[in-house]
Structure formats: C-alpha cells, structure tokens
Design a protein around this nucleic acid. Sequence first.
DNA 1: AAGACGAAAGTGGTTGA
DNA 2: TCAACAACTTTCGTCTT
Length: 325
Amino acid sequence: MSGDSNLQEKVSDSSEATSRDSFKVQSCPECGSSRLMRDYECAEVVCMDCGIVVAAKIADRGPEWRAFDDEQRSKRTRVGAPLTYTIHDKGLSTTIDWHDRDVYGKSLSPGQKAQVYHRLRKWQRRIRVSDATERNLAFALSEITKISNNLSLPKSILETASVIYRKAVKERLIRGRSIQGVTSAAIYLACRQCGLPRTLDEIAQSSTVNKKEVGRSYRFLIRELDYKIPPLRPSQYITKFSNQLTMQGKVEEIAHKILASAKQLKLTSGRGPTGIAAAASYVASVLTGERKTQREIAEIAQVTEVTIRNRYKELVERLMFEISI
DNA sequence: AAGACGAAAGTGGTTGA
DNA sequence: TCAACAACTTTCGTCTT
C-alpha cells in the first residue's frame, strides 16, 4: 500500500467509507457525476466535477513494486498462471520443463540427465496423477482439449466443458459410461449453454464416438445434472451459415428480418432450426441478387434441398400473403 | 445442362396409451 | 413396449432458365 499515513488518518475522520466499499462507488453522492478519480497516492476517490472526497482509505489493489520491462515484471511478480479447469489439478502443480537444463541454462551432464528422466519425472507423474479418479479426469480433460482444438472452439467453451465434466465426475455419473461419450457430450452441452451453434454431427466427427452416442450422453447429462438448455435459435444458425457461405452483411441482415417475420407468423415452431435458417438465408440470397443454389446452402446447413424448399415455400406463401393484405 | 420443383416412399425420434 | 405421428431424408421424374 502506498500513501501518506498522516493524510490517511486525517481523511479517515471525515469519511465513513471503508476501503471495501470504496470500489463499489460509481457516482458522486453530492453532484451525481460519474467522473470519479482514484488517487492511490492519497488513498482517496475524488469527484472530478465538484471536488468532494467520495471515499477514503481505499486499498490500492495494484502491485507494490514497479517494473520497467518484461524481464523485471516476470521476476517481481509473485503469482503464477490463472486457475484453469482444463487441467485435472487446475494447473496448480509443478510441471517439469522439457529442456534438460539447470537453473543457469547450462546443459545437464548425461548422468544428471538420467537422474532427471528416471527419478524426478517418474515421481512427478506419480504425484500429479495419484489415483484412478485423477487418471480418469486427466485423460478426459485431455480428450476435451483435443476435440475442442479440432473444432477450433473458443477457450471459454473448453473451460465450460471441463467444469461440466468435473461436475459429472463429482456426481459419480461416469461409472459405466465411455469417457469419450461423456467428454463429447460435455463439449456439446457447453456449446449449447454458450449459444454456439454446433451440431451433434460436428462434435461426433471430431471425436471417436458416433452421433447417437453423443446425443445419448448429452441427454443423460442434462437429466442428471439438471441443466435447462433452450433450443438453439435459427438466428444463431443464420450468422453461422452467412459466414460459411461468405455472404455480404446485408444478406445476413435481410435473412434475420425474414426470420423475425416468420417467427411472428408462427412458422418456426416445431420445425428444425437449421432448415428455417437455411431457407431464410436462401430467400435473402435470392432477394439481394447474391444468389446461392439450394444445394450450396443445404450442404452447409446439413439439411436436404427438399427441406429448404418446403420451408422456403411456406415462407414465401405466408410472407406474400401478409404483404398483399 | 444446371438448378429448381414436387410427389412418394422411407427413416429415426418423440409422445402417449 | 408399441403404435401413431410429425419432421425430415432419399429418390426420381419433370419443368425452367
């Protein structure tokens, strides 16, 4: 903490604010201004408009040291990498570097190397992955990472899927099920939870299990872990398809508009979201003159041309009817 | 000739008795 | 467990551009 102790005492008399809630202050109680300045030298929060001290004795949450370059920063920092659920011990344990060098960067002698290889690493492994559950978790999480990398999913999905799998382990749901099935299902569940449109097929293709198994495990997880997952909205698919079809932003915009009207006309309920999204994309592509064939869209949307035609027919019929009225 | 259209039969999943 | 059902797929012939 930095600051003049005399000054701190003085302001502590004039203000009841504690360091804990000073961080929550959003606006000045006197003039309502939101232009507040945190002065860590004086440990105060000051209103920039009327000059009143809004909070005092605030805690400086930054580091107490200064660093002028990267090297100094890495030397002075006392915390490690953030916690991650994607590693079975949350990334807390020590990892032995694969460079066989000592702390000074010198190569190890052959004798020392043998020692490092055979003793240190062996015990390191034994300590890190101690029992069967740990081993299971370590294997499963590496599977999740693999599938997630295959599908180039964002890191947040990877973390979410890892948390879901951990929950499943905690509830003892893995017993008697294939790890691959549950890991794939956890990824699919994470995608659904985050509103990322990925199909069961895509997940199945990136893992070793088939679509049916992923689906079964997914339903099992939903039921047992009590998840409430809303069905994917067609609009989420439109964005995905537009990207894959490299359509202009305008086409996507029109497709969204078509979808909104279709929803109002109750054309969307009970229908597969992919089919509707594909049809809306098709209509939009025709309307804008940036025409895509039904087959192109069908291939990307993983539905048949017939389905696109059926949805498209309904859309055109009803929308034209609405317009004519 | 490619793409669009539509009919008919088949498939896999859900629902309710 | 099984039949009924809706949505969707597959296949194939025909029409349009």
